[in-house]
Amino acid sequence: MNETVTDMADLPMQHPGAPASAAQARARFFNSGNAFNVKLPEVPARLFSPPPEGQFGVFDCDQSEALGSVFAATTPLMLARYVRIAPGDMPLPLDVRATGAVWYVISGSGRLDGAFDGFEFGAGDVFLLPGATGYSLAGGPEGALLWSVGNEPQLAFERAEPAPVVDASIDVVHYPAAEIERQFATIFSTGTREETSGRALIFSSDRQAAARNLTPTLTLSFNTLSPGTWQRSHRHNSAAVTLVVQGEGCHSVVGDAHRPWEPWATLVTPPGAPHSHHNQGAHGARFLIVQDGGLHYHARTMGFAFLEAAR
């Protein structure tokens, strides 16, 4: 008579047999057949639009329901959002519950204040904020529309808090629009190699320059596409959150999905998804990309690869 043997993978989670303390009773055990088959929802490739004119406040690009997350998240480790401030309005209180958050000023102007010397900002500026409470954003005469990405979900996942500003791994950094244009002019005065992934401006700071990151876990690049060109299909293990800054007749292909660009839209590229960007318009295109790339560079898991040959 053949005796049926239970497959190891079918064993349920195991508890300790005779725990002698509360600490021992908390132990749980799996095995090599059932410990690595956790199925998580995929990151959706989605396009978010900015809030309509006349709507003010904070607007998260939230995919938490699709991700099965109990906290707001655009990707498992990043949260993108739009913030619209009314002209002459009371300053908007802002807490950055992240290691750091990058901000891009889409339109208008204003002033940022907080746990450091404040500064004025205008359209086209980029700035970086370390995690802290007590920031405030005030709109200028025309108000302001801003876009931001931070690693709030990464900290929320571990129920962690940002380090105090004096102990933070980054400082406040302001990249004015005029300086960004000066840097672009330098880039466009040079040539490129076949293996170079287009012409892009990579943002960093004095404290993160060795890693060439924006924060220990986030990277920021300002990519460009000349008319009639495309960034050939590629993949990487980091997720990407992209802001369309300018580009008519442009689209992205993410997996099998064709994603036409919309003004100031946010495009989510899932980790590992094949994707490419195309400019079929008559003018140059620009798009700002935040990735959790610093995390993957540190872990040696970026896995960047082109999926088609250069033409």
Rank of each mutant, 00 (worst) to 15 (best):
G247W: 01
P41I: 05
G118W: 11
T74Q: 08
R28T: 10
P263A: 11
A160N: 10
L146K: 06
P263W: 07
S107E: 15
T4F: 04
V166S: 10
H278M: 07
A80Q: 09
E194N: 05
A273Q: 01
Q14N: 05
E53W: 00
L155G: 01
R199N: 07
P227M: 15
W230K: 15
A144E: 01
A209P: 02
V105C: 12
R46E: 11
P91Y: 06
P141F: 15
R81Q: 14
G294I: 00
A22N: 12
G134N: 12
N37R: 11
A23F: 14
P41E: 13
T196R: 09
Q246I: 03
H236Y: 10
V268F: 01
S233D: 14
G281L: 07
P91W: 04
A177D: 15
P153M: 03
F184E: 07
P12D: 04
G124N: 09
H278D: 04
S69Q: 12
A200N: 10
S136H: 08
S276R: 14
F222N: 08
A138D: 02
F188T: 15
I289G: 00
T217L: 12
V38T: 12
D60T: 06
D292N: 15
L267D: 02
D10Y: 05
D125G: 04
R97D: 03
D89F: 10
E158P: 03
T229K: 13
P270M: 05
A80K: 03
D95Q: 04
W147P: 00
A18D: 12
S64A: 13
P227Q: 15
L295A: 10
A305G: 10
V172D: 04
S233P: 05
T192N: 13
A9T: 11
S221Y: 03
P41V: 08
T224V: 01
W261I: 10
P51N: 15
S221T: 09
C250R: 02
L155D: 02
G303V: 07
L218A: 11
V149S: 06
G110E: 03
E181T: 03
E262K: 09
P12M: 06
N34S: 08
E42G: 09
C61T: 00
I180F: 02
R212S: 09
A66L: 07
P12C: 05
E120K: 04
R193P: 02
T301K: 08
V105F: 01
Q291L: 06
G228N: 10
P153G: 02
G247V: 02
F30V: 07
V105N: 00
R232E: 09
S49V: 10
A209R: 13
V173S: 12
F48Q: 00
G17A: 15
G17M: 13
G140C: 09
T6H: 06
A27D: 15
A310H: 09
R81E: 06
A168C: 08
N151L: 02
T242D: 07
A160R: 10
A178C: 08
D125L: 12
S226L: 11
L201G: 05
P260Q: 10
F36W: 12
W103F: 11
Y82Q: 08
N237M: 14
A80T: 05
V126W: 00
L94H: 13
P164N: 10
L307C: 11
T215A: 07
A86R: 13
A138E: 05
L94M: 14
L129I: 04
